[in-house]
Design a protein around this nucleic acid. Structure first.
Lengths: 298, 298
DNA sequence: ACATATTGGTGTATGCGATACACAATTGAT
DNA sequence: ATCAATTGTGTATCGCATACACCAATATGT
């Protein structure tokens, strides 16, 4: 059951029994209001004892710890010591809560600087942001399973886009080119992170077994499946990759050694082998290509 | 309501009330069996009148047409003229059905060839596959909202990986490098497609309005939100991009004109502006970088 | 041909999750 | 002090995935 997860836009229950068809739009606006902290009108009733932020933070904690499955309105309310329905005084629906969660979870983008305070060269900036993006995804794996770039645009999300795009702008790209370039990088990282997270899951639950077993690090279900089905005659390239150990559990895989001579640049301290070999190599090629493009335009 | 969608791994209901904790693993194996068509043992009971494929195809049609929300076991069964529970004679659960749906929906990758039958240069092959990936996503937008690279690995999924990876291999990359490169490209496309799909949604439902209204093409909720919140002082780059018309409804946006001089290469016939400017530009830079990397290695 | 073990199709029941609705307690504005 | 808006709560509804038990169909062993 650990692998299972439900994702955004639940839509259970009765759902908009009322009049016309603009309910979704209204909720969307409500979501934006929540995200941008509008509607702080002085109230009249009893002082609220909860807040959207507290609810969202609790929800994030649950999602971080136990995944999106465990995230139900009842669960959140229980965690907070309130009734389920009390949450609906602060959030119009679960979907909107998820929107708020996302923006809070991404947080502020880093503002990469060299130790001496000067700003880094653009490539280093891009790499720093890329690494930061990766860390966010790893810290909150749940939102790899939900929408992210949808209409509900929060202040933090925009800040990341701004930071990433402007890093490319400093490399000499036009605004639009830079936007596309950053989207390209971010999308790749996101997808790689998703694959990483999902394949990490699937290890059989350790329930009845000997609890003193020395962490035998079983290969992931992903790896097992690949080893079984990626047969050489139908999938020659893939089978070679599998054989090379690409999908083996971390630490000193064959693939890692092949590249260990490469300079690490901005990723010197990066401890994730997956990131290093899945993202850094293509990213460097991409930045090379950008550089020569800009040079060619000069 | 149209924007809402539920995603993979539903997990509703009672869920594994029985003994140990290995139920998930068993189901996963069952899923792989389904995907790879194992267990065609001659049966004894009455001849099945349904089939996994028929169920999956019906499900795909529903998802394509009405989105993942509308996809319930009851709905599928109703469409087929059977009871809900009859489906469970063919599929262990909804999650497994989704796995099968994915693999059927992606289908076979193209085998790009020049008109004269010779094989294309590697760059053209990569671009052809990239475009094919995009089209698959556009044809089945629902699986942008669900997992995709998870442990359930189907034959078609592997075929795409093989095709994409080997295209890069022909460019001179090592197997592992090629795999990462293709993952990089595929992830970007997937993410861009997701953004595209989601921002395309959000147009107010056309219910009560005048049906003869001349398709006024309202800008997406995404665009509206950006125009509202991407203020120049906090998000200078983004606001410039928005002002440049990047998020305006298709056809002749300012961004498009800026690049219209560029040669189209493998994408000559591509009618999607979004793809052309969001994917093609970064992809070309990426391939440039790969080329110079390979050249530099001699 | 017959008995038997299987398997397909169905009806019913369970439990969960989201959320509408109405009521009670609370408190700022008049 | 009075009133209206607002919070917190209890209850009810609806959709959904799915367990379970039953009957009919059917290939296999006798």
């Amino acid at each position: 059951m650990a692998t299972e997860n439900t994702s955004r836009r639940p839509g259970g229950g009765t759902g908009d029994p009322g009049g016309g068809g603009s309910g979704a739009v209204v909720n969307q606006m409500r979501s934006l209001e929540l995200l941008w902290g509008e509607s702080p009108r002085p109230r009249r009733g009893p002082k609220p004892r909860l807040s959207i932020d507290r609810i969202a933070d609790t929800a994030i904690t649950i999602a971080d710890t136990e995944g999106l499955d465990a995230l139900s309105m009842q669960r959140i309310a229980g965690e907070l010591g309130y009734t389920t329905m009390s949450l609906y005084r602060y959030v119009p629906g679960k979907a909107q809560l998820l929107d708020v969660m996302i923006d809070r979870a991404v947080g502020q983008p880093p503002t990469p600087e060299a130790p001496d305070g000067t700003s880094l060269p653009w490539r280093a900036q891009v790499e720093a942001i890329a690494w930061a993006v990766w860390r966010v995804f790893m810290r909150h794996p749940w939102f790899l399973s939900m929408q992210f770039a949808g209409p509900p645009i929060g202040p933090n999300h925009l800040a990341w886009m701004e930071a990433g795009t402007s890093a490319f702008t400093r490399g000499g790209l036009s605004d639009v080119e830079a936007f596309c370039a950053f989207a390209f990088v971010q999308g790749s990282i996101r997808d790689w992170a998703r694959a990483e997270t999902e394949s990490a899951a699937g290890a059989p639950a350790t329930e009845g077994g000997s609890p003193t077993a020395p962490q035998e690090q079983p290969e992931s279900a992903y790896a097992t499946a690949l080893r079984t089905y990626a047969v050489p005659d139908r999938y020659p390239t893939l089978s070679r990759i599998v054989a090379a150990g690409m999908f083996d559990p971390p630490q000193r895989s064959g693939a890692a050694d092949a590249h260990s001579e490469e300079d690490r640049g901005a990723f010197a301290g990066v401890e994730s082998e997956s990131f290093r070999f899945g993202i850094v190599f293509p990213l460097r090629r991409f930045l090379d290509g950008i550089e020569s493009y800009v040079a060619g335009q000069g």
